[in-house]
Simulated assay, not measured.
Amino acid sequence: MELVMATLAGILFMTGVYNLLQKQLLRIVIGTALISHGAHLFILTMGELKRGAPPILTDGIEQYTDPLPQALILTSIVISFGVTSLLLVLAYRAAKINGTDNMEQLRGNDYE
Rank of each mutant, 00 (worst) to 15 (best):
L25I: 05
I43C: 00
S85K: 02
L8G: 06
H40Q: 15
E2K: 00
G99H: 06
I56D: 13
E2M: 12
L90F: 10
L26A: 13
L8H: 02
I61Y: 12
L87R: 02
P55W: 01
A71D: 04
F13P: 05
L3S: 13
G38P: 02
I28Y: 13
G82V: 05
T58S: 12
S76I: 01
M1A: 14
A9F: 00
G82Q: 02
Q105C: 03
M103T: 15
L88N: 06
L3Y: 12
E112C: 09
T100C: 10
Q24W: 06
V17T: 15
T65Q: 08
G31V: 03
L72Q: 00
T32F: 14
I73C: 04
A71C: 01
I11A: 15
E112M: 08
I73S: 04
S85T: 11
L20V: 04
G47C: 01
G31Q: 12
N98R: 10
T100S: 10
T32R: 03
A95H: 10
I35F: 07
Y111M: 11
H40Y: 13
Q63D: 15
K23Y: 12
P55R: 08
R51G: 10
L21H: 10
G10W: 07
D110N: 12
V29G: 01
L49V: 13
H37F: 15
G16T: 04
S80C: 07
E2P: 08
A39M: 12
Q22F: 09
T58M: 14
L21C: 11
L106Q: 03
S80G: 07
T45L: 09
L34N: 13
E48V: 00
V29E: 09
S36G: 11
N98F: 11
L57A: 15
Y64I: 08
M46A: 04
M14C: 09
L26M: 12
G16Q: 02
Q63G: 10
G60N: 15
G31P: 07
P55I: 03
M103D: 00
A94D: 02
F42T: 10
E62M: 10
N109C: 02
L49Q: 09
L49Y: 09
I28H: 15
G108N: 05
G108M: 05
N19E: 08
E2Q: 04
E2C: 07
G82Y: 01
T100E: 09
L21D: 05
Q70G: 03
Y64F: 15
A9R: 02
G60T: 12
L86D: 02
L8P: 03
Y92A: 14
A9M: 01
L20E: 03
A39H: 01
V89R: 04
A91H: 08
G60W: 06
T15P: 00
I97R: 10
Q22N: 02
L44G: 03
T15S: 14
F81H: 06
G16K: 02
